[in-house]
Simulated assay, not measured.
Amino acid sequence: MNLNDLGPLMVRRQDGGLDLDRFRTDPILAALQWPDDVLRDFLFEHGDHGPFVADYGHLDLSAITWTLETLPATDFHTMPTGESEAGLIEHFAQNPVYWASVKVPEVGRHWEDHGTWLRPPLLIDRRLWGPSDSGLQVVEGRTRVGVLCGRQREGLYVASHHRAWVGRP
């Protein structure tokens, strides 16, 4: 099963919130067993985003296991993102203080106090594309990874390790 088989993913409730019921009741989607944080982030960012589906729609979602992992800050410096959003991480890295400040105030304070993000990004193991691919790719969280890279480049406080949801085969 892949994203192209699912049709529209995001269902909004009348109050504007996300309806996660489809992911709890649809047998195919429930079998993915995505953690609530992964599911919420994924739907919020990409539920009806055509370019995202073009980048990742071919992946067999049932072959992915999601875990919350702690990774060295240096690992994020060379991580790509999907082809449709190439260059966005570097765009955000060019002005990390600004991009952290345009979010809710807690985001900027968290970067200053802890040197990391409030909400872990979603990464995916590139071996899901084939055995010749390696490393991790940013699926969701390009702004956060860009802020991290930019803060490090500018000599601002950055934690040595960061948490991220990682999808692996």
Rank of each mutant, 00 (worst) to 15 (best):
L3Q: 03
N4P: 00
L9Y: 01
L9I: 08
V11R: 15
V11H: 13
L20T: 15
L20S: 04
L20N: 03
L20Y: 15
D21L: 14
R22C: 02
R22A: 10
F23K: 00
L29G: 03
A30I: 06
A31T: 09
A31E: 13
Q33H: 10
W34Q: 03
D41Y: 02
D41N: 12
L43Q: 02
F44G: 15
H46T: 15
H49W: 11
A54T: 13
D55T: 05
Y56D: 00
H58R: 14
L59S: 00
I64N: 03
T67W: 00
L68F: 04
P72G: 05
F76S: 08
F76Y: 15
F76H: 12
T78G: 09
M79C: 02
T81L: 05
E83R: 07
A86D: 10
F92K: 05
F92D: 04
A93H: 06
Q94M: 13
N95W: 07
P96W: 04
V97G: 11
V97K: 08
A100I: 01
K103Q: 15
V104M: 12
V104L: 13
V107Y: 03
V107S: 03
V107T: 11
W111R: 01
D113S: 10
H114G: 01
T116D: 04
L118A: 04
P121Y: 03
I124N: 00
D125K: 05
R127Y: 01
L128E: 06
G130T: 09
G130Q: 09
S132D: 12
D133F: 13
L136Q: 02
Q137Y: 00
V139G: 05
R142W: 07
G146T: 05
C149M: 06
R153W: 05
E154G: 09
V158R: 00
H162P: 07
H162V: 05
H162F: 11
A164Q: 05
W165H: 12
V166P: 00
V166I: 11
G167L: 02
R168Q: 12
